[in-house]
Amino acid sequence: MLSPADLATLPFDDWINAFVRGWLVPNFRPWFRAAQVPISAVLFWLDSFFRMVPMLVTTAAFAAMAWKFAGRGMAIFTVLGFAFIDMIGLWNETMTSLAMVVTSVLFCAVIGIPAGILAAGSDRFWRIMRPVLDIMQTIPSFVYLVPIVMLFGVGTAPGIIATIVFALPPMVRLTNLGIRNVRSDLIEAAEAFGSTRWQMLRDLQLPLAMRTIMAGLNQTLMLALSMVVIAALIGGGGLGLVVNTGLGRLDVGGATAGGVGMVILAIVLDRITRGDLPKAGLWHGIARQDAGRFLSVAGAVPGPRSQKAG
């Protein structure tokens, strides 16, 4: 049977090797190293902070947030879950993972929200952006672990960079979506009153897109959590390391303990950041109005709100 391979074979892997090893690494390694400095710094600071704060204080703080954003049941779950983690001896590892996740999400937000805003403002930028995001989401993360190690070395910071690559897309997508969904007649009104682009963004687009952006943040957070184990493969610490070690030694107990710790952390973080979001799907209808109420001066003179007069 004739196949294209009979006519020609392409040394695709050699090309990539030549590109990464022969050009990217020798020429740009110092740049990449420098780029990870802020990530390392934030991570180091957060990691030290979370591990320094006494377990009870941290638990109380998370329980309070859970109560505020997800109700009493979730607050109780948080207390019990964190106590369980502490009792199985994984508190410090959990805090390291938390620091990694928070760092990743922070950088995803810092990169993703502006990128989403730009994408919403320019169809051309969005046309370029979309395939890039698609690739970031579909390419298996193991594939980019190797070049990341080559460029950044091993350690927790490269792990976080891999996590950012993996977790960034929803942040950009949902920021873009949220801003594009702001009613066009409101945009027109803002323009008609002579607002600048920045004023429009601050007064109108960001507040009205806030719910959608928060949903993006929540998704990004969940993706970042799921990367914790993979990041441990290239030297990340925390619960991922516990799981990997258990895996390497066929230590079912150790691996499971690490896994349970992650599940607890994931549930708590998810419910807190999801806040009082209504179920997905209802978002777009309700978001605008509720964002309005949510952001309007709380406690301002009540006025005859309830009655629809006229």
Binding site: F193, G194, T196, D203, P207, R288, Q289, A291, G292
Partner: peptide, 25 residues
């Protein structure tokens, strides 16, 4: 200034804030 068919009031702002929009700008 302009007045719109579907009002185009900012849903997240109070009436007074809406009225003052042009002044804020």
């Amino acid at each position: 200034a302009m007045v719109f068919q579907h009002f185009a009031l900012f849903p997240h702002w109070t009436i007074a804030e809406n009225v003052a929009y042009g002044l804020k700008v």
